[in-house]
């Protein structure tokens, strides 16, 4: 397909792109509207305006001062960090081992992990929640432990891709140079594979930040940001809630756009893309 630079011949393309852009931007626009349009204007008319009749930071200020936001956000942050950390703690050794045992055997394990991963969250979450209650884990630690289930297969797969891309002689060289396995891991393999590890961490982090099912079932009170947001929404404190939603959505959007490069470049092929 040649680069077609003339506007005219590309007109259908631009029209299509424009329509799709509108479809995909509109919900975000609504979020911005709810956040920045003065609440009374929205409240008074049952049919909220599509074009902002005014502009205010009041909703945001109100949200931050009246709602107790620091709790859920901090907890979400901790949980996301724990999930990211667990992904690495379990995923790096597993990926290392999978890279060693031969591709055919490794594939069987990966299929197993992904198959388990397809188990509906709610099916697993309810018995976990009942058991965790007995163990005193009906809190964010329990949530982190459960959310790890969602991201572990993917993390292993991404890190495995990184390991597969490394020349195996680097590890051998380190062994020959007198390093034992932990030292080789720490000094050679992990630094060499840091981009895959970083992507795995970020995706785990993002998934946890977004995760709702496990969070609401395992720790319905003193929970993470999505659960808190859900509570606010059901209690109809929408304007503050939306301000809240917008401000904490922005960083994650940035991460997503950054990760777009990886997603588009098909780098998640277990190190086997052409």
């Amino acid at each position: 397909m040649s680069v077609n630079s003339s506007w005219k011949s590309n007109l259908p393309l631009y029209i299509g792109a424009l329509i799709l852009s509108i479809i995909f931007f509109y919900p975000l626009y609504v979020l911005i509207l709810i956040t920045f349009v003065p609440a009374p204007l929205n409240n008074l008319s049952p049919y909220p305006p599509q074009i902002p009749p005014g502009f205010t930071f009041y909703n945001i200020i109100q949200a931050y001062s009246s709602l107790n936001l620091t709790g859920p956000v901090t907890r979400s942050f901790y949980v996301a960090m724990m999930v990211g950390g667990l992904s690495l703690a379990l995923g790096i050794p597993a990926a290392y081992g999978l890279n060693k045992i031969g591709v055919r055997t490794a594939n069987k394990f990966i299929i197993f992990f992904f198959l388990i991963n397809m188990m509906p969250g709610i099916v697993v979450a309810i018995p976990i929640s009942v058991e965790f209650l007995k163990l005193g884990l009906s809190n964010i630690y329990g949530v982190a432990l459960a959310q790890e289930l969602v991201v572990l297969p993917l993390s292993i797969f991404i890190i495995l891709g990184g390991f597969r891309a490394l020349p195996s002689d680097l590890e051998n060289q380190a062994r020959v140079d007198g390093a034992n396995l932990p030292t080789t891991m720490y000094r050679i393999l992990i630094p060499m594979n840091r981009s895959a590890i970083l992507v795995a961490f970020l995706l785990s982090w993002m998934t946890s930040w977004d995760e709702f099912t496990y969070a609401v079932i395992i720790s319905p009170v003193k929970s993470t940001f999505p659960v808190q947001l859900y509570n606010y929404v059901t209690r109809a404190v929408s304007f503050e809630a939306s301000a809240f939603a917008l401000t904490f959505t922005i960083p994650v959007i940035i991460v997503a756009v950054v990760l777009q490069k990886y997603l588009k470049s098909q780098s998640f092929t277990g190190g086997l893309s052409s």
């Binding site: 020349p167 002689d169 680097l170 051998n172 060289q173 380190a174 050679i188 060499m192």
Partner: peptide
Amino acid sequence: FQNYALYP
């Protein structure tokens, strides 16, 4: 090693 395996 054949490809020198220098730590990059």
